[in-house]
Simulated scan of single mutants.
Amino acid sequence: MNPILILQDQLEDMGAAAIAALPTLGIAIVILVITAFIARFAVKIADKLAGKTEVRPSLRNLIDTLVKLAIWLFGLMAALIVAMPGFTPTSLIAGLGIGAVAIGFAFQDIFENFLAGVLIMLREKMRIGDVIECEGIVGKVEHITLRETYVRKLSGEVTLVPNSILFKNPVEILTDETQRRHEVVAGVSYDTDLDQAADVIRTAVLSVDAVIEDKGVDVFACEFNSSSVDFKVRWWAGSKPRDGHESRDAVIRAIKRALDEAGIEIPFPYVTHTFKEPVPIKGRGED
């Protein structure tokens, strides 16, 4: 039999089958379009319902994602059943079971970040807007997805951090509370009355508007340094990084001004040179 005729017959059969499948494919596409509208509408309803409660933004994102995922899974299943009449959910589960191991190894990182993202959204800490520090990354949490977290660094750049890193490593939340303790070291000369110096420093720190007076101010003599006795000065102010910079600037200025007014020296390192032999000093005019 002529191979060309065989190929021609096969192409004609394929074309006829494709034309016959066009109505079902069209219906499947319509189902997907309707699914998209329903998913968008359902997310809006979920947002409105969540807006009436005190749900955290991260948890609200998780609810929106799960609602959208559930609707799309149902819509895709319906479209596949219409496009392929022999397809059933049982056959899909069986097919997934056969390739589950291979899929698990191939998408291990994706599944790990997905699960970490769900757990991060569920936990109460690390809300959107918090300033965090993790693995050398310091910045504000802007958005949490099921794959990664958007962290806006203090210098303006945004870092996409995989959720598994934030879940498996210690995360320091700098703005978990609105107040935070800050500290600075102030040194005075060895001939200073330390009790007087401590009182002067404490009064100066309390005079700063950014310092929270109710929390108190600590002034501890902490070290005999090379040319000074050092005090560790601790106070409470706002927890944001800029609050810390501003309050530290004001505290240092106030301490310097108060010590100067009290006649207390803030020493700098002294260097004493010794020589094994006397150093001759020549008078003026001598060669």
Score class of each variant (00 low, 15 high):
residue 162 P to E: 01
residue 236 W to T: 15
residue 27 I to R: 07
residue 19 I to V: 12
residue 140 K to V: 13
residue 163 N to W: 07
residue 157 E to N: 09
residue 232 K to W: 08
residue 177 E to K: 12
residue 46 A to K: 00
residue 170 P to L: 01
residue 90 T to Q: 12
residue 166 L to V: 05
residue 240 K to D: 05
residue 150 Y to I: 13
residue 65 T to D: 05
residue 28 A to L: 09
residue 164 S to G: 03
residue 155 S to K: 09
residue 32 L to E: 10
residue 266 I to W: 00
residue 161 V to Y: 07
residue 204 A to W: 01
residue 137 I to M: 14
residue 117 G to Y: 01
residue 2 N to V: 02
residue 149 T to C: 01
residue 147 R to F: 03
residue 270 Y to H: 06
residue 50 A to P: 04
residue 256 K to V: 06
residue 254 A to N: 05
residue 231 F to E: 03
residue 4 I to T: 14
residue 165 I to P: 02
residue 15 G to P: 00
residue 257 R to D: 15
residue 143 H to E: 07
residue 249 D to F: 11
residue 69 L to M: 12
residue 194 L to K: 05
residue 253 R to K: 14
residue 242 R to H: 10
residue 170 P to S: 01
residue 213 E to R: 15
residue 131 V to R: 04
residue 173 I to K: 04
residue 122 L to Q: 08
residue 247 S to F: 04
residue 110 I to F: 13
residue 155 S to V: 04
residue 259 L to G: 07
residue 137 I to P: 12
residue 50 A to M: 09
residue 204 A to I: 01
residue 53 T to W: 10
residue 6 I to D: 07
residue 285 G to I: 05
residue 176 D to I: 10
residue 249 D to Y: 11
residue 10 Q to C: 04
residue 52 K to L: 02
residue 70 A to D: 03
residue 7 L to M: 11
residue 97 G to L: 13
residue 114 F to K: 00
residue 18 A to R: 01
residue 61 N to D: 04
residue 247 S to H: 06
residue 151 V to G: 08
residue 191 D to T: 03
residue 79 A to I: 09
residue 273 H to W: 09
residue 101 V to I: 10
residue 79 A to P: 13
residue 284 R to P: 11
residue 68 K to H: 12
residue 70 A to N: 06
residue 250 A to E: 14
residue 12 E to L: 10
residue 1 M to C: 09
residue 155 S to Y: 11
residue 222 C to S: 15
residue 59 L to E: 05
residue 186 A to E: 08
residue 262 A to Y: 00
residue 266 I to Q: 03
residue 26 G to D: 09
residue 276 K to T: 12
residue 193 D to R: 05
residue 36 A to S: 13
residue 80 L to A: 11
residue 251 V to N: 03
residue 169 N to M: 08
residue 163 N to T: 10
residue 25 L to Q: 06
residue 191 D to K: 03
residue 262 A to F: 00
residue 265 E to M: 02
residue 140 K to I: 11
residue 119 L to M: 13
residue 266 I to M: 02
residue 4 I to Y: 14
residue 144 I to Y: 02
residue 90 T to C: 06
residue 41 F to T: 13
residue 9 D to L: 00
residue 32 L to H: 11
residue 273 H to M: 13
residue 103 I to S: 08
residue 80 L to S: 13
residue 261 E to S: 13
residue 164 S to M: 07
residue 31 I to F: 13
residue 264 I to G: 03
residue 168 K to I: 09
residue 252 I to H: 06
residue 50 A to S: 11
residue 110 I to G: 06
residue 120 I to E: 10
residue 103 I to Y: 14
residue 7 L to E: 06
residue 269 P to M: 06
residue 83 A to Y: 12
residue 140 K to A: 09
residue 103 I to T: 07
residue 18 A to Q: 01
residue 187 G to M: 04
residue 105 F to V: 08
